[in-house]
Design a protein around this nucleic acid. Structure first.
Length: 108
DNA sequence: TAATTGACTTCGC
DNA sequence: GGCGAAGCCAATT
């Protein structure tokens, strides 16, 4: 169990429902900018339970992947209130979660 | 310990 | 806009 892994988990757990974060973003918040692939690897190993890994998406608003069940990830995101346009997140720039960003108010 | 793979990202054609 | 190649980091074998 590397510290990086725990770091990624902590960051992902901080992502509020209805919002998403990119792998690169999570990597940076985890303290490893550029480690987007590493973040994917951590997620792929299930990281830990209670971690909404489905809120972590690829850059450009793409879904990325979810153990091969991309459709499931899509359903989960929509269930959280994320509007999807095909296989992409609508208003991704707004839906993207950022630390310091006010999310409880729901305002963008 | 070293090599390979992978839920990524970005530039180029 | 879609396909291809290079770069980066960590986990797994």
């Amino acid at each position: 169990m590397s510290r990086f892994r725990t770091r990624v988990i902590a960051v992902v757990r901080r992502i509020p429902a209805g919002q998403v974060a990119t792998y690169g973003d999570v990597a940076e918040l985890a303290g490893a900018p550029g480690a987007a692939r590493a973040v994917g690897s951590v997620m792929r190993t299930c990281a830990a339970r209670g971690v909404p890994c489905h809120r972590v998406v690829a850059a450009g608003g793409q879904l990325g992947g979810y153990g091969g069940s991309e459709a499931m990830k899509r359903a989960l995101l929509q269930a959280e209130g994320v509007v999807l346009a095909g296989s992409r997140i609508r208003e991704f720039a707004v839906r993207r979660w950022q630390p310091g960003r006010r999310t409880s108010a729901g305002r963008r």
